[in-house]
């Protein structure tokens, strides 16, 4: 029995819907991981110890355990605590927080690397430490880590396939459903791979644009 890609077009609608869900979950999780990463970095560096210590535990949990396990915990585990999240929301929270922790590590290092003179100049103008962090230090730190954060976001896109296991009908699950009907795993997984690659190219193009736009402000 040879390969037969002619079955793929008849599932184009389902796959296209899967692509849309993958893009949606990636964008929402990426935004959560970006702003969450900034917030976590600030907490880790400047938060009072009462917040910092539980946060450290939380960061360890998200960096030291598999993302798949975290998704199970959020989607199935929290139900026992009476928190029944829709699969999409659970997926976004899992992916977003997981990558927020990684982004936070990058941003913390970058904040500490911003020239000390920047804080001094802002303080001598009369800005408070918080104002100086928000207006001067953090924007520069974030600008400096846009390339590595971009790499994290591409990893996030690929890991978004994991949310198929909690039933979000994104690209991987759409492919699996099509395989279940046609028994053509190679054709549909290959099609999904091509579609992931295309989304990836789009994402890289967007990231390159953002990097270029911040070039002058260095």
């Amino acid at each position: 029995m040879g390969l037969d890609f002619s079955v793929v077009p008849s599932y184009a609608d389902a796959l296209f819907l899967g692509v849309l869900w993958t893009i949606a979950i990636t964008i929402v999780s990426a935004l959560l991981s970006f702003f969450g990463g900034i917030l976590f970095a600030v907490i880790a560096l400047y938060g009072p110890w009462m917040i910092r210590l539980p946060f450290r535990f939380f960061a360890w949990l998200f960096m030291g355990t598999p993302l798949l396990l975290q998704l199970f915990l959020i989607y199935f585990g929290l139900v026992e605590l009476g928190i029944d999240l829709p699969a999409f929301v659970a997926g976004v929270i899992g992916l977003g927080l997981h990558f927020a922790v990684y982004n936070s590590e990058l941003i913390q290092t970058a904040i500490l690397a911003v020239d000390k003179g920047q804080m001094e100049a802002a303080r001598t103008l009369g800005l408070s430490r918080t104002q100086a962090l928000i207006r001067v230090v953090i924007p520069q730190a974030v600008r400096d880590v846009i390339p590595p954060i971009g790499n994290n976001m591409i990893a996030l896109l690929k890991d978004s396939a994991l949310v198929s296991v909690i039933g979000v009908s994104e690209l991987t699950l759409s492919a699996q459903l099509a395989i279940g009907r046609t028994y053509r795993p190679f054709e549909f997984y290959a099609a999904a791979a091509v579609l992931y690659y295309i989304i990836n190219l789009g994402m890289e193009a967007v990231l390159r644009r953002i990097e270029r736009r911040t070039q002058l402000s260095r």
Binding site: D115, G117, Q118, E120, A121, A122, R123, T124, L125, G126, V136, P139, Q140, R143, T214, S217, R218
Partner: peptide, 18 residues
């Protein structure tokens, strides 16, 4: 409040690059 009345200029400028 006091620093608003005291301007300072640094050796390495310390302009905000962003």
């Amino acid at each position: 409040e006091m620093r608003q009345h005291i301007g300072m200029v640094f050796q390495h400028f310390n302009l905000f690059p962003h």
